[in-house]
Amino acid sequence: MSPIIENFEKSVNTLLLVSTLVATVTFAGAFTVPGGYNSPGKGFYIFVICDSIAMYSSIIAAVALIWAQLGDVTLLLDALHLAVPFLGVALSMMSMTFTAGLFLAVNKLR
């Protein structure tokens, strides 16, 4: 096997780990909403929407990266081309979820 393909396989494993961690964190975040579920405001809706987008994007990336491990080089490259943008969206939305959650946690402080 060529060294280039081995590098792609290492990248797939690393990206799969990251996408799984993002899915885990965003799943947990959906059940531990800062400020509780009784604070329906703009920050709450931003939190829920960004968390959902992050979770589903990371799941799509993880599934694509699992397909990449089947051994076909063409499938590996196609899966990487699909997963990397979705993982970028997931990471961006996760950071927005953090910001919205922080706002919900401290917006009632004086």
Score class of each variant (00 low, 15 high):
1 M>Q: 13
4 I>H: 12
5 I>Y: 08
5 I>H: 09
5 I>Q: 12
5 I>P: 05
8 F>A: 10
8 F>I: 01
9 E>Y: 03
10 K>E: 13
11 S>T: 03
12 V>F: 05
12 V>I: 13
13 N>T: 07
16 L>Q: 02
19 S>T: 08
19 S>P: 05
20 T>R: 10
21 L>V: 06
21 L>C: 07
22 V>T: 13
22 V>G: 10
22 V>W: 10
24 T>A: 15
25 V>K: 11
29 G>I: 00
31 F>E: 07
31 F>Q: 07
32 T>S: 15
33 V>Q: 11
37 Y>D: 15
38 N>G: 14
39 S>T: 13
40 P>G: 11
40 P>W: 09
41 G>Q: 01
42 K>D: 07
42 K>S: 10
43 G>K: 01
44 F>C: 05
47 F>L: 04
48 V>T: 09
48 V>H: 06
49 I>D: 13
50 C>P: 03
50 C>W: 02
52 S>R: 05
52 S>D: 11
57 S>C: 09
57 S>Q: 05
57 S>W: 06
59 I>L: 15
59 I>R: 14
60 I>F: 11
60 I>T: 12
61 A>V: 09
63 V>W: 03
64 A>W: 00
66 I>A: 14
68 A>S: 08
68 A>W: 01
69 Q>L: 15
71 G>E: 13
72 D>I: 02
73 V>N: 12
74 T>A: 13
74 T>V: 09
75 L>Y: 01
77 L>K: 14
79 A>N: 03
79 A>E: 01
79 A>I: 01
80 L>R: 03
80 L>N: 09
84 V>N: 07
84 V>A: 14
85 P>D: 06
85 P>I: 02
87 L>Y: 03
89 V>F: 08
90 A>M: 08
97 T>H: 03
97 T>S: 11
98 F>L: 11
98 F>A: 11
99 T>Y: 04
100 A>Y: 00
102 L>Q: 07
104 L>A: 03
106 V>N: 05
108 K>M: 08
108 K>V: 04
110 R>V: 10
